[in-house]
Design a protein around this nucleic acid. Sequence first.
DNA 1: AAAGAAAGTTCGGTCACCCTAAATCGAAAA
DNA 2: TTTTCGATTTAGGGTGACCGAACTTTCTTT
Lengths: 217, 217
Amino acid sequence: MHSLAEENYLKTLFSLSNDKAEVNVNDLSKRLGIKMPTVTSMMKKLATKKLVHYESYKPLRLTEKGKKEAALIIRKHRLTEMYLVEKMGFGWEQVHEIAEQIEHIQSSEFFAKMDELLGYPKLDPHGSPIPDKNGKMVWSAYSKLSECKKGDTVKITAVINTSEEFLKFLNSREIHIGLKLKIKSIEPFDNSMVVTYDKRNAETLSQIVCERLLVEK
Amino acid sequence: MHSLAEENYLKTLFSLSNDKAEVNVNDLSKRLGIKMPTVTSMMKKLATKKLVHYESYKPLRLTEKGKKEAALIIRKHRLTEMYLVEKMGFGWEQVHEIAEQIEHIQSSEFFAKMDELLGYPKLDPHGSPIPDKNGKMVWSAYSKLSECKKGDTVKITAVINTSEEFLKFLNSREIHIGLKLKIKSIEPFDNSMVVTYDKRNAETLSQIVCERLLVEK
DNA sequence: AAAGAAAGTTCGGTCACCCTAAATCGAAAA
DNA sequence: TTTTCGATTTAGGGTGACCGAACTTTCTTT
């Protein structure tokens, strides 16, 4: 249906749109590692396919159709990550790169089978929600660790904006989905938090890290 | 390393070379569904990469390097087919198309893991040998069913030149790898064979079918 | 051996996707 | 309000992978 390049633009635009209200050509360009003029022309192309609303000098917006297509690609990505971890024994920090490629496989049977074998999971191994077959994605009512108060005890349910470096960092601190931790103190100067859990007595997490950890109480 | 297109040329040239002594531009062109001028120019490109020996108007030959690369792609294809059948529950006639895409995934860990989970198989679900990590492929001493004599009792060990139609045909006759059958008679006119086995008492197989079934005695 | 057919090559073109350099727009600062 | 500067688009190019048309080589047939 769509080319590999188109799928990557769609998916990335979708992800960026979830992170911030307005996504610019520049943002997309940086994230994809593709120069702005190329991004502009691809946006025009996707606009003719009714996948994005494009107006010169305006922020980029996906159409409903575009959102659905993008969500379906992300569905494939997250199902794949889940499968790699659950059924093949990969570590959660290894699977992103492989899933990045497998998400472009064209075979609904293949992904339906994964879904079935995994028992129709709702979250991927990083805790991000897996969109359903219609591209609907339901975020549970998670809050960011950075928004919690001193003394709170919370359970980590998801990790956002996953990069391999970040995942390695979490592993090195033995932090994983499902971990319960207590907030000992919050440093007013840089908003870093000192937390205790299971295996660590006083671990300091920077604000950047706290922004990326979703928790429930 | 190589582009998707290059990989497809290599793989196809390798397969055709196993079927017949000399492979022409025309053969490759037909098999790939790509016009001859395009094939010619790709051959020149692959020649500069030392993957094929190319001389104008001469048959096409892979270099040793080219053979190895091709075998490694076929390894990925066949491992994938095996995995899809054994670990995901697909039918053997469904897996070719999916494997056709997954064979291009770039991740040695991914295929190493498949190999491990499958217990380092030697044959794919169609009975074709899986090249090893160094691109070495060992064909057992199979013979074609079409080369057997009246009265022989043989076991089917592999299927060559698999197409979905052919696999469906075999399924419809309940013919599968491992099946033992006896040759009742051979029709001299068209070299078709009448065979008996397990569930069928007198099944007629055309020469085309018999050419594609590998057996051991 | 000459003619005709088939196979292979050469020679422009096209399309997708990427680039740099230069022009233009728009928002924030002077 | 004018300047300035970053963001954006336009213009022009490049490469990979494909094509058709026309030409050349090789094979086949007579």
